[in-house]
Computed example of a mutant assay.
Amino acid sequence: MEPQIIVRAAPQEFICRPGSWGSLEQHLQKRGIRRVLVVRGNRSWTAAEPYWPQLKETEVHYHVYSGECTYRERDVIAGYASEHQLEAVIAVGGGKITDLVKSAAAQLKLPAIILPTLAATCAAWSSLSVMYDEQGAFIRFEVFASSNALVLLDPAVIAASPSELLAAGIGDTLAKWYEADVIIRHLEAPPVEVELAWDAARRCRENLLRYSSAALAAVRSGELNDALTRTAETIIMVAGLVGGFGEDYGRTAGAHSVHDALTAIPETHRLLHGSKVAYGVLVQLALEGNWPEIDGLLPFYQELGLPTSLKAMGLDHLTREELLKLGERAAVPEASIHMMPRLITADAVADAVAELEEYITAGQSQTKGASIL
């Protein structure tokens, strides 16, 4: 296992402070950008519009995305920006809008500027896009040579977002530690870049266990506090550093492979990305036989409303044959689950899912292990 390491540590510029969106036009002018395409959603725009600055000296075009990060949607955005000779593409929204903008900007070799409305993934930080098909099933992720030009994170915007999306972001970011650690701890002499990724992954876990409860309370009350700012920066910045420094050693392992497999089941399309990844963490730990860690995580999951079982996701009807299909998708040859230091087969994944289900359903976790909170 010798993946090539190319450090893509950070966007060119990152600003996190209340009111940071107000400096957008100033940053555009510094770059000589006068004509932009803003890609936005519908629901997210309703919440974000009060924070959107007046761009008095900039020609602004808008595109409302269709709801999925697909190549067809990417090509529509790139085609429009090219036809109108626009000079930058701006994302105002969550992870899928952000990934669309990064992919379109990379195709056109234009700056990608990100104004997150959610703290649900590290998409605003990372120089890659996760692509799906029209039905919402995962296809692949693509890594770009250019970093994002600018990220303006306004914690006040995050405070106005739905609490369940923040909880999903916490679940997705918690996976950074478990997926990086299962890979890196088995390396004899990790390169310095990978050690930095490992440190960042550990910081993700520590920050989330410390600040998540207060951050969620802030979002539920629509208020901004220090815990929310720290949680948002952890989800977007610190998590982004893990893959930025570690590349394949710090990006994904078993949890995201389980997520990717789940996206092929139509019933899971209503579930948030981070919720499926959080469940994938438990499956990965079951594959490792690390039941004490599962026991420790369960109270945290329950507090945040993250799924701990197939039943919690409405999937307890899956047959053994369907679990094997899930395992086959999770263990395709190119899947990151094979970064784990053991042979992973479809049977192994299906067995881990079934064993986890039995463990959670039987309530054995109440008599084993201790909370990590």
Rank of each mutant, 00 (worst) to 15 (best):
R8F: 11
A9P: 02
A10S: 15
Q12V: 14
E13C: 11
F14L: 15
C16K: 14
S23V: 14
H27P: 02
Q29T: 12
R35P: 07
R35D: 10
V36H: 14
V36N: 07
L37V: 09
L37S: 09
R40L: 05
R40C: 11
N42V: 15
P50T: 01
Y51T: 02
W52H: 06
K56P: 00
H61S: 13
H63T: 01
H63L: 15
G67V: 04
E68S: 07
R74T: 15
D75T: 10
I77C: 06
Y80K: 13
E87G: 11
V89G: 11
V92D: 07
G95D: 02
A104R: 04
A106L: 03
L110A: 10
P111N: 07
A112H: 12
I113L: 13
P116W: 11
L118R: 09
A123V: 02
S127F: 14
S127R: 15
V130Q: 08
Y132W: 03
E134T: 06
Q135R: 14
G136L: 05
G136I: 03
A137L: 01
F138M: 05
R140N: 14
F141M: 01
F141A: 03
F144L: 10
A145K: 14
S146K: 15
S147W: 04
A149C: 06
V151R: 13
L152I: 02
L152R: 13
V157S: 09
V157M: 11
L166F: 12
A167Y: 06
A167P: 06
A168Q: 12
G169M: 06
I170L: 09
T173H: 00
T173E: 12
A175V: 10
E179P: 11
I184G: 09
R185P: 00
H186W: 04
H186G: 00
L187C: 04
V192D: 10
E195R: 15
L196E: 08
D199H: 12
D199V: 10
R205N: 03
L208V: 03
L209M: 13
Y211T: 01
S212G: 06
L216K: 11
A218W: 00
V219G: 06
E223K: 14
E223R: 12
L228H: 09
L228N: 05
T231F: 05
A232R: 05
T234G: 10
I236Y: 01
V238G: 03
A239D: 07
E247M: 04
R251I: 01
A253Q: 06
A253W: 13
A255T: 01
L262M: 15
T263C: 07
I265K: 01
I265T: 06
P266H: 08
S275T: 05
L282D: 00
L282C: 06
V283E: 05
V283Q: 03
V283Y: 07
Q284K: 02
G289I: 04
I294C: 10
L297H: 03
G305C: 02
T308E: 03
S309Y: 10
S309V: 02
L310P: 07
K311R: 15
M313Q: 13
G314S: 05
L315T: 03
R320V: 09
E321G: 12
E322H: 05
K325M: 11
L326F: 04
E328C: 04
A330P: 13
A331E: 08
V332G: 01
A335I: 01
M340Y: 13
L343F: 00
D347Y: 01
D347M: 04
E358T: 11
Y359P: 00
T361V: 08
A362Q: 13
S365P: 00
T367C: 02
G369P: 03
L373N: 12
